[in-house]
Amino acid sequence: MARLILTPEHQIQRLNSILNKVAPLQQRSAESLTTAPPKSWNVLEVLAHLSIALKTYDAKIEKALDEVKDATTGSWSFKARVWPRFVIEGQRPKDKKRPFKIKTLKRFEPILPSEDFSKATVDLVFKEFLTSYGNLKSVITESRTKQMRHPTFSSAIGPIVKFYLPEAFEFLICHAERHMLQIDEILASQD
């Protein structure tokens, strides 16, 4: 497997792409946002899932950020370690496709009212997504001039995978990029 060098700028640029893609979806009809192909989530459920996934990392990221010191050499560049890189690459879309489907753990499944997708629910899901991923971008921006030396922390699936901050950022972004493709597939099924 080739080396994987992570940089905050690359992550910020991709997060901006994700935010730019999701924000206009708010203009779509409630029907479009809540209609799913067979055995799939709808757009709202995908966004709710992404917010849940990110929330499981909030405290860990915050704790790690408290432990890192200022750098004197500009923004960081981080070589992902072998096992985290394997996990990251499992999420990363290949050639604008999801390489394989991954079964979602129960605790990451979005729980939305099954029939009553009111405007308030729609607005709340978008607000949570845009706020949480906007915060992730702020955290990455804040980390740019820090030394990425801190105790590793467990991933959301447990201590079998442990991350440094850049690896956790990359995992979360690849995970979101994967689900952006799922949103494309859901919307394409409606055309």
Partner: peptide, 10 residues
């Protein structure tokens, strides 16, 4: 120093 004035994607 090192602050991003404008980000790609913004």
């Amino acid at each position: 120093q090192n602050e991003l004035i404008t980000e790609a994607g913004s």
